[in-house]
Design a protein around this nucleic acid. Structure first.
Length: 884
RNA sequence: GGGCUCAUAGCUCAGUUGGUUAGAGCGUUGCGUUGACAUCGCAAAGGUCAGUGGUUCAAGUCCACUUGGGCCCACCA
């Protein structure tokens, strides 16, 4: 006999214990095997600065379910873990901690600062890893990678050089998104647009020859006027035609600027005249190039105005705005201000408004890379789940822009570009040398005055190599050969562009193979009002708190059960009660079984016994239900319908196994075959539950009399389709209906148990009567009856109460007080409803199109249904009359 | 402007290729349960499946439009 189990499941006592055991026994480690097919997921590497949030919890629970499921199904199942160095985010964190000491990164210098970052990483960088372990993730931790590992950096450099040599990397001046706080360029994807309330300022620019005449321009960023080099109007605009080619005097700065014509100007917006600031606006930049205008940069990288801004030099950009407006107002050149909603890019890290800024950056030409990545998805080599993301992906890929990959920060992979100062000064060939290591001397002029590019690469420039760089590419090692292409990628929608699309491009470009076959995109976790969870909104639910309060299994199960494919998750804390209750139910059912099980009865083989012995219907039924559930679970997991799988297991275990089966067998629990079946169903169901709820399933597994090894090492139950018996399932359903009807009647009549009534059943169908007779003991038992008898064509008497089911009707003596009129009325409503349904069915069954086109099973089902309804209606009439 | 998505019970949501009487959890109400579990069981009430039209023998499911949310991309002087 196993030791006594407590009445409630206590996750705290089990979770850490089993995780340790799994780790110590190397159960997460995936081994290359010639006999097993590979299954591999690479984790979306969380930032080293990361702290587990609900998004992670959902993302990683899904991956763990897949990994554990495939492992049990006999795959060499590898979950490749790692973390991302997260350039800007990590640098920010370390800079913040420096600030507490009153230091800036510049005070330390580049090398010392990077040392500090590494120290920080060693100390805090594995927080997220520990938290993933709390979640139960079965990652192969011995393979843990970091995007700044030395081998990984080798891959990054290799890729840069290959692309450079293919002329897919170039250096160029462009208007990029500049974060004045982080002082770095941001890619378009990193500058997220958000609406804000601003103003549209109408500024008057005087004409040179007629100083009393003005052209009014409208702008949202008046401070940039000091960098204006033209004003543009639409050539079709009658109002301004006469001014084209004339000269304006830029107020405050007193510079002469030209009025140019361009068809791109919207005549409807503002005044129809637009100031052109080529160095501070992407559109104006294009205009500037087109019309050969000057590019005047008016700002320092930190967002303060520079010398070109003359008297405003040194002012922060928004202070400068105020000053400019003040001065224009004094001069009478500020015509009006009208409120205007506009959207501006914000730094995705610090939410500072980004400044369009002209600077020299490195870019990757994306169009050539995108081509084959588009093909691969179109041909179905890579599939998105849910499928709709395919469109989103293709739409973006077909309109892809070049990727700005340089960042003006210190923490990251330094760009492998060196400059020869000698060549640069001679200006012969820009003096660019691209090399894995610092060259001794310039290959052109042999100068040794060589220095490295200051910029580092965008973090995603390393992440996009993740599916193969984690396997030590460009080396060709055995893991890479065996596990690449990986199987499934599980990720959130917001990084399809950042990451998924780029990985596909990188995989095809450098490995000549797709990086993964399936992409499963799950929803975003939101709060109950549909807002994204964020610290600033204060609406976060901390998964670690949930774990502490409800347990990891509860967290995992609840999350999964409410996550339907690709739909956003609206979460509140109460959700986790369901998971906790389920864990407790599993616990108590197992406790009950173990308390009643004689271990020697658990030894027989289920299938053999099933062939040799005759099992009663209750046992046949639960076996059939188990295999039906298994079948559905397999289908759901294979199609990434995790919530379906979870909910299905939930209702099987709770409402079928516990509520019906365990209740039905209580009187016969000592019986040998019942012992075997209850044990086997529990044991097999635990295996199905394990991927979802790894800890409790292991804890119970270890208490089973036959447990060998960890539940993780067990095979997934083999589907015995021949043990699914639909007739048994239907018959049991009838039993449940009878029992429920009786309980319901009693409840309606408010009869206490004391009455212990006798019930008469009238069957429409003789064969049903035959098959149900052996089950009467169960019915009597659960419905708490003294007698159950069968009557033929019995007409209810005045002192009797009736209920009707599909093919039978139930009569019980009236011992309580019941409102007969109400009962008659109820029956009349039922009769009317059935009659109208009968009408519809008859029309349908008379329809030639239906008879010729509908499948035979459907037609038969409909015919049976009609027959049933006729019978039922007739019986209801009889009852109604009887009651009267 | 382009694309995606949602609208089903009081609340939060399932409903896989159209096919028995549209489901679950929570909440409400009633009844029950003192040897697995009150973190329990059984049941009831509660739905014109957003609206309109169409396709079909058959529509919550497919199509079109309308209304109202949400998201993404582009633009935004």
């Amino acid at each position: 006999m196993t030791e006594e189990l407590s009445k409630q499941y206590n996750p705290k006592e089990t979770e850490d214990k089993w995780y340790k055991v799994w780790e110590q026994n190397n159960l997460f480690s995936a081994k290359i095997s010639s006999s097993k097919p590979p299954y591999c997921i690479v984790i979306p590497p969380p930032n080293v600065t990361g702290i587990l949030h609900m998004g992670h919890a959902l993302n990683n629970t899904i991956q763990d379910i897949l990994i554990r499921y495939k492992r049990m199904r006999g795959f060499a199942s590898l979950w490749m873990p790692g973390t991302d160095h997260a350039g800007i985010a990590t640098q920010n964190v370390v800079e913040r901690s420096l600030a507490k000491e009153g230091l800036k990164r510049q005070d330390l210098g580049r090398e010392k600062f990077i040392e500090r970052v590494w120290t920080w990483k060693e100390e805090y960088g594995s927080t997220i890893i520990h938290q993933l372990k709390k979640l139960g993730c079965s990652c192969d931790w011995e393979r843990l990678r970091f995007t700044m590992d030395q081998d990984y950096s080798t891959a990054v450099t290799e890729v840069f050089i290959r692309l450079y040599e293919k002329k897919l990397i170039y250096q160029g001046s462009y208007i990029i998104n500049w974060c004045p706080r982080c002082q770095t360029a941001l890619s378009d994807e990193e500058a997220s647009h958000a609406e804000l309330q601003g103003n549209l300022y109408y500024l008057k620019y005087p004409l040179k020859d007629k100083p009393l005449e003005f052209l009014t321009v409208a702008t949202t960023r008046p401070e940039t006027m000091v960098g204006d080099t033209a004003v543009a109007v639409n050539p079709k605009d009658k109002r301004y035609k006469k001014y084209i080619g004339k000269i304006l005097i830029l107020p405050l700065i007193k510079r002469e600027i030209k009025i140019i014509a361009d068809p791109g100007v919207d005549m409807e917006f503002g005044t129809g005249a637009v100031k052109v600031t080529p160095a501070h606006d992407p559109n104006d930049y294009i205009l500037g190039k087109k019309h050969n205008l000057d590019f005047i940069n008016v700002m320092h990288p930190d967002g303060r105005m520079n010398e070109s801004a003359q008297k405003y030099s040194g002012l922060e950009r928004f202070k400068a705005r105020e000053a400019v407006l003040e001065d224009l107002k004094t001069l009478g050149l500020l015509e009006k201000i009208i409120p205007h909603r506009l959207s501006a890019g914000h730094c995705y890290r610090c939410h500072t408004i980004v400044e369009p800024y002209l600077s020299k950056q490195w870019f990757v030409k994306m169009k050539p890379l995108a081509k084959q990545a588009i093909e691969a998805v179109k041909k179905g080599e890579i599939k998105f789940y849910p499928e709709r993301w395919t469109k989103v992906y293709l739409n973006w890929m077909e309109n892809i822009q070049d990727w700005c990959i340089s960042r003006q920060i210190w923490w990251g992979h330094r760009i492998p570009v060196y400059y020869c100062r000698n060549c640069q000064t001679k200006n012969t060939a820009k003096g660019i040398i691209v090399s894995k290591t610092k060259p001794e001397k310039c290959p052109k002029c042999a100068s040794t005055d060589i220095f490295q590019e200051e910029d580092v690469l965008d973090t995603w420039f390393s992440s996009w190599l993740w599916p193969f760089a984690t396997f030590y590419w460009p080396k060709e090692n055995a893991d890479l050969k065996y596990f690449y292409p990986t199987s499934t990628l599980v990720t959130a929608p917001e990084i399809i562009f950042f990451w998924v699309a780029r990985m596909i491009m990188a995989g095809l470009e450098f490995k000549k193979k797709i990086p993964f076959k399936d992409v499963y995109i799950h929803g975003t976790v939101r709060d109950i009002e549909g807002k994204k969870m964020s610290k600033s909104l204060g609406n976060v639910i901390d998964p670690l708190e949930v774990i502490a309060e409800y347990g990891t299994d509860a967290l995992r199960f609840s999350l999964i059960s409410i996550t339907s494919q690709g739909q956003d998750v609206y979460l509140s804390k109460e959700r986790f009660e369901q998971g906790r209750n389920f864990a407790n139910k599993i616990w108590n059912a197992s406790r009950f079984i173990l308390m009643n099980l004689k271990p020697e009865n658990s030894n027989a083989d289920l299938c053999v016994s099933f062939k040799e012995e005759k099992f009663d219907i209750v046992n046949r039924w639960i076996i059939s239900r188990f295999y039906s559930t298994l079948k559905k679970t397999n289908e759901d997991l294979d199609a990434y319908r995790f919530n379906e799988a979870a909910n299905n297991l939930y209702s099987f275990f709770w409402h079928e196994f516990c509520d019906w089966y365990l209740e039905l067998i209580k009187p016969q629990i000592g019986q040998k075959q019942t012992q075997l079946i209850m044990y086997k169903v529990l044991e097999k169901t635990l295996r199905l539950i394990h991927p979802f709820m790894p800890f409790i399933s292991e804890e119970i597994w270890q208490r089973l009399p036959k447990a060998q090894g960890s539940i993780m090492q067990q095979n997934w139950p083999h589907l015995q389709a021949d043990l699914i018996n639909e007739d048994d399932e239907k018959q049991m359903q009838v039993v449940f209906d009878i029992i429920n009807a009786i309980r319901n009647m009693r409840s309606e009549m408010e009869l206490g148990l004391a009455s212990r009534p006798e019930i008469k059943l009238t069957f429409a169908d003789k064969s049903m009567e035959e098959s149900l007779r052996p089950l009467f003991s169960h019915i009597k038992n659960l419905a708490k009856l003294d007698q159950l008898s069968i009557a033929e064509n019995y007409l209810p008497q005045e002192n009797e109460y009736t209920s009707i089911l599909k093919n039978m009707h139930i009569v019980m003596p009236l011992k309580g007080i019941v409102n007969v009129a109400e009962q008659i009325n109820k029956n009349q409503v039922k009769i009317d409803k059935i009659k109208s349904e009968i009408k519809n069915k008859e029309i349908m069954l008379a329809n030639k199109n239906f008879l010729s086109r509908a499948p035979k099973e459907i037609i038969d089902a409909e015919k049976n249904k009609l027959k049933d309804m006729h019978e039922q209606a007739a019986k209801l009439e009889v009852i109604k009359n009887g009651l009267r």
